Simulated assay, not measured.
Amino acid sequence: MSKTTRATQALAKAGIAFTTHSYDYDPSVDRIGMAAAEAMGEAPHRVLKTLMAEVDGKPVCVVVPSDREVNMKKLAAAASGKSAAMMKPAAAERLTGYHVGGISPFGQKKLVPTFLEEAALAEPLVYINGGQRGLQVRLAPADAVAVLGAAAMPLVT
Rank of each mutant, 00 (worst) to 15 (best):
R46F: 12
D30S: 14
Y23A: 08
A85C: 12
P27W: 01
K110G: 12
A77H: 06
E38S: 05
E69C: 08
R68S: 12
N129D: 14
T8Q: 03
V63A: 03
V64N: 04
A146I: 11
Y25C: 10
G130Y: 09
L11G: 02
V62L: 06
G15C: 09
Q132M: 15
A92M: 07
D56Y: 00
A78S: 03
V64Y: 01
P113Y: 01
L75G: 00
A37P: 00
A79R: 03
S2F: 15
N71F: 14
G107E: 13
Y23R: 02
L111K: 12
A144R: 05
V62S: 01
A76E: 07
S83E: 14
L11K: 02
F106G: 05
L111G: 14
Y23P: 02
F106K: 01
R138W: 12
P44N: 06
Y25E: 14
V64G: 04
P44T: 04
T8Y: 00
A146K: 12
A12Y: 00
S2V: 14
A35Q: 02
K109E: 15
A85M: 14
K74G: 00
G97R: 00
M40K: 04
F106T: 02
K13T: 12
V100A: 11
T96C: 08
Y25P: 07
A142H: 09
Q136I: 14
A78M: 02
I128C: 08
T96G: 03
E38M: 08
K110D: 09
G102Q: 04
M40G: 03
D30G: 15
Q132A: 15
G102R: 01
A78P: 02
A146F: 15
A91P: 06
G41L: 09
L51E: 07
M34H: 13
V147S: 02
A17C: 08
K58Q: 11
L95C: 00
P44D: 12
V47H: 05
